[in-house]
């Protein structure tokens, strides 16, 4: 129980991600059917996404889209910055140094508490990863169709046997 409290509960997401990853990996390696392998691949990729998204979670935070009431107060600041035109760069410079020195000063300036919003970066990265995942899936499915056309089977052992035999349709 102590172990649960110390190592499992605070890291529950991470544990599950490892479990999913193992499931996926195992399927990718040992499954005989190509489509099953791909299912395993999907699970595997999702596990990674789960890991990333879990990194970005902050307790008590909300989604990384600025809320409406920020909008009003903030828009003016933005306009002011925009109007200053060429000074823009210097100003952000200034902000940046502020940022480094004292985070609370920023909060006062902008009224945005970074802890209030979930970390957006993993979300961005994982959008990309999902896209990559579905593209890979598509290509893999196309390849499996092509294999089926040549071998009439999607079972790995049957395909290997056919290759070994060098039957019709198999060019050695």
């Amino acid at each position: 129980m102590e172990f649960l409290n110390a190592s499992v509960i605070p890291y529950f997401n991470y544990w599950i991600y490892v479990v999913l990853m193992m499931i996926g990996l195992h399927a990718m390696i040992t499954k005989n059917n190509l489509i099953k392998k791909l299912i395993g691949m999907s699970i595997f990729q999702t596990a990674i996404i789960l890991f990333y998204v879990s990194i970005g979670v902050k307790t008590g935070s909300t989604i990384p889209i600025l809320e409406h009431h920020h909008d009003e107060g903030h828009a003016e600041t933005a306009h002011a910055v925009a109007e200053s035109g060429d000074h823009h760069a210097e100003e952000t410079d200034h902000e940046k140094s502020d940022h480094g020195n004292n985070e609370h000063a920023i909060e006062a300036d902008h009224g945005i508490d970074p802890d209030h919003f979930a970390n957006p970066l993993p979300h961005v990265l994982m959008l990309t990863a999902i896209v990559v995942g579905v593209s890979t899936l598509g290509v893999a499915l196309a390849i499996s169709q092509s294999i089926y056309k040549d071998f009439g089977s999607l079972e790995e052992n049957e395909i290997l046997a056919k290759i070994k035999q060098g039957g019709p349709g198999v060019d050695v």
């Binding site: 999907s42 999702t46 996404i49 998204v53 935070s61 909300t62 990384p64 979930a118 959008l127």
Partner: peptide, 20 residues
């Protein structure tokens, strides 16, 4: 697998990753 992906979607949503 479709269900899996529904659940994953729910998971992202409850973790605050709306775009994902």
């Amino acid at each position: 697998l479709g269900v899996y992906s529904f659940l994953i979607c729910l998971l992202w949503a409850e973790m605050g990753a709306v775009d994902v």
